[in-house]
Design a protein around this nucleic acid. Structure first.
Lengths: 199, 199
DNA sequence: CGCTTAATGGCACTCACTGCCATAAAAGTT
DNA sequence: AACTTTTATGGCAGTGAGTGCCATTAAGCG
């Protein structure tokens, strides 16, 4: 079985799981129920997702990965804030509105569902490593140097708060204007935290 | 039963759990085993700790609470970096070396034990709220304003990285010098992130 | 078309965790 | 002191998450 095929399967199951989670809560949704909704046996469901909460991972990684892609494309001659302003909009546009809404729905869910919040936070910490890679290259330091780790963590934290905020503020569907505001907020906040990094 | 009595009981169970976790791993340690080690029935053990991973909470909160106490005592006329340099040492001294070592042992454990890492991260996020309270008062803004939340998150992230680092570097017992270095690192890093907050 | 290999499903099992009730200890009342 | 009320604890049975094992099936390949 090809790798991307497996990823698509995971994403499909994930969508069903997220829908059930939002409709009736995580605790009230059994693994058997998710498996049945996704049209797969319970045994194979547990093979795709080692824990129930990790069902939200595939939809969330899409968002995190998108930001990492943008960050990796950061050209040396540009200020970070300008790059984010320019490059973050295509990502926003290319992503279908439904996908963005799904991600924000999950982020909203993580408040009030501690298990989901925990999964979300460990996911973000993994993304923080990717961020540290980019920063390390940019700063000419080893990727596990304390300075790189500190800045990556600060930037990641800022991104988390901004994402939580946009999820909370746009509970009833996302608009293009709201996403622009989000982009601007992220650009300024991340640049402020990372400001002393490059000079 | 008094509240502090319950807290002491929780802390006692927590110590046994942490010891077992470090000795044989989280997965290999059953709730029954922890309960038996702590001299309590399994049923009451589950009453004290709703999840197995939350056993580490009592020892970890001691560390987080200590920093919050220091931060709350931040006098208005002092620069944050100077206050941290002055006030963070008493905390370090008052805490017994064994306690500090226990905390760092748990922090070390959270790497390689995803469930513990998850619990650790949600705990830190709760501490982030306390930090936001202090910052809100200091900045004269509502505690849920985006600016306060952003700075609290950044500061909290910096603290986490610094703590991970000191735990990793001092696997074989902590020394006074190492703690001084840690304090200095935290002071400079937190001040840098929070620097633009007060002026 | 045979053969190998990987994906799936079914089944039984362990263990985290919960609800229920009985008991014991603590606290308050007379 | 005895008596009542409350609260903490323990035992027991049950649910559901997750795992190991084996049979079956589908997929890749000569």
């Amino acid at each position: 079985m090809s790798d991307e095929q497996r990823q698509r399967q995971r994403l499909d199951i994930s969508r069903h799981a997220v829908r059930l989670f939002t409709e009736q809560g995580v605790a009230a949704t059994s693994g058997e129920q998710i498996a049945q909704a996704a049209g797969v046996s319970e045994r194979t469901f547990w093979r795709y997702f080692p824990h129930k909460e990790s069902c939200v991972e595939p939809v969330l990684t899409k968002m995190v990965d998108a930001f990492c892609v943008v960050l990796r494309a950061w050209p040396p001659e540009l200020e970070l804030i300008d790059h984010l302003r320019q490059a973050y909009s295509p990502v926003v546009d290319s992503a279908s509105g439904a996908d963005v809404d799904a991600v924000l729905a999950v982020v909203r869910l993580t408040h009030g569902e501690p298990a989901l919040r925990a999964a979300y936070l460990v996911l973000r910490e993994r993304a923080e490593d990717a961020l540290a890679d980019v920063l390390a290259e940019r700063m000419g330091l080893p990727r596990d140097s304390i300075d790189v780790r500190l800045r990556a963590a600060a930037a990641s934290a800022v991104l988390r708060v901004a994402t939580d905020d946009v999820a909370r503020a746009n509970a009833a569907g996302i608009t293009v204007e709201a996403l622009s505001g989000h982009r601007e907020q992220i650009a300024t906040a991340v640049s402020r935290v990372l400001g002393a990094a490059t000079p």
